[in-house]
């Protein structure tokens, strides 16, 4: 299997708190990787450091063998990395359609000018691409509604559609099933498997063990900012260190 993204000695501390501690992650191409661990283990912070929202205090991030540490978020996005958030971060005042169209923004202002003058059909292409992702995620009929007026489950899906519209090769999902009911979670699992079958590589942070154990090929377990286990779902489930980290501490693990 080929490595798509890796971190070497990734660290991030906030004053005295070491949120991520000398982490060596390895994300393989074409599979779904789970990133689990108790609350405060440093999962979200790792995502932030990889996607450029936060700067690591130490270590490096490699994507396709290229050192991308310290790259700006738009640059990282253009290289093919997208993400969603633990707490929804939609453009609440925009319509569903506009939310996804914004994700297709990265073209030059020159081409904006041209499309204003109707010299090229860039704008049309954006609408088609945005429409495609809305349709795939069952949001097309809601396209003219304001994002904040959607029910929670659909808002979660819109965030996924928006991330996909940036055409990533690697997708980071921070608790995509949080707040979803059983049916919605099953739907999400199907969607994620479909994306993977089409060649997308995915990393999921999730406390829902049913989802993690059923869609992930690889799982990495963090605790106190450090990796304490790694392997297939089966290996991880029987890893004594992992069991210890979760036992009595975390109620989600039993879900």
């Amino acid at each position: 299997m080929t490595t798509l993204l890796s971190t070497q000695g990734l660290s991030r501390s906030f004053g005295g708190i070491v949120a991520v501690n000398d982490l060596n992650l390895q994300i393989n191409k074409g599979i779904i990787t789970g990133l689990i661990g108790p609350n405060g283990a440093g999962k979200t912070t790792s995502f932030n450091c990889i996607t450029g929202l936060d700067s690591p205090t130490g270590g490096r991030v490699f994507f396709n063998d290229r050192d991308i540490t310290g790259f700006s978020p738009p640059r990282i996005n253009r290289l093919g990395i997208a993400r969603t958030f633990q707490n929804l971060r939609l453009f609440r005042d925009m319509t569903v359609f506009e939310n996804v169209m914004v994700a297709r923004h990265h073209t030059s202002s020159f081409s904006t000018l041209l499309s204003l003058l109707r010299i090229n059909d860039e704008e049309k292409k954006i609408q088609i691409a945005a429409g495609h992702w809305l349709e795939r995620l069952g949001l097309w009929t809601h396209r003219d509604e304001r994002a904040q007026d959607l029910p929670y489950g659909l808002q979660k899906r819109l965030e996924l559609a928006r991330a996909m519209a940036t055409e990533p090769t690697l997708l980071f999902l921070d608790e995509p099933a949080a707040g979803l009911n059983r049916t919605e979670t099953e739907q999400l699992m199907t969607t994620l498997r479909d994306f993977r079958d089409e060649g997308l590589s995915i990393v999921i942070i999730e406390h829902d063990m049913h989802l993690i154990m059923n869609v992930c090929e690889q799982i990495t377990v963090l605790n106190f900012g450090q990796m304490i286990g790694q392997g297939t779902p089966k290996q991880v489930r029987t890893n004594p260190l992992v069991i210890e980290a979760y036992l009595g501490k975390d109620d989600h693990a039993t879900r």
Partner: peptide, 23 residues
């Protein structure tokens, strides 16, 4: 326009706008 949408995006959530590839 696209730039208009980008302006609204930056004004609402600059961080997320960046993640959408907006400079």
């Amino acid at each position: 326009t696209r730039t208009g949408k980008a302006m609204r995006a930056v004004s609402e959530k600059p961080m997320v706008a960046q993640l959408m590839g907006i400079d």
